[in-house]
């Protein structure tokens, strides 16, 4: 997965930072963003292949952030991160152009699989 650029957006610091570290450990260029607004700033200045976006965040929520990202850079694949009780937001995200959704808490391997599929799609492998 070398060369894969991922932005991980989640307001839960421990969770976000650890995931970013673990992705980096797997040779993925991962960055973290603690809010939707911060994510948009980063996306404006940087290019990413895949963005993992938490649905429930204070301030701008995942769905709103997704809309802005798809306006700004529609080529980036987005994976929605949902809780069990908010599966409908994952589905809504997919209607708005997200690649897929993953239910939290998911084992890292499951998340990596989905990220990989999204990357493959972006590269036109599927």
């Amino acid at each position: 997965m070398e060369g894969l650029r991922v932005l991980f957006v989640d307001d839960e610091d421990d969770f976000r930072e650890t995931i970013v570290k673990r992705l980096n450990a797997r040779k993925i260029q991962a960055m973290g963003a603690e809010s939707g607004v911060r994510a948009l700033e980063i996306v404006k200045d940087n290019d990413f292949d895949v963005i993992v976006l938490d649905v429930k965040m204070p301030g701008m929520d995942g769905i709103e952030t997704l809309r802005h990202i798809k306006q700004m850079k529609p080529e980036i694949e987005v994976i929605m991160l949902t809780g069990h009780a908010s599966v409908e937001f994952g589905l809504k995200g997919m209607q708005l152009g997200a690649f897929d959704y993953v239910m939290k808490p998911a084992p890292l391997n499951e998340l990596l699989d989905t990220i990989n599929q999204a990357w493959s799609k972006k590269r036109g492998l599927h």
Binding site: E12, D14, F15, T18, K104, P105, L108
Partner: peptide, 12 residues
């Protein structure tokens, strides 16, 4: 769920 996710990731 949220703390559980953090614990899971930290352990991972």
């Amino acid at each position: 769920n949220n703390p559980l996710a953090s614990i899971s990731e930290k352990a991972g």
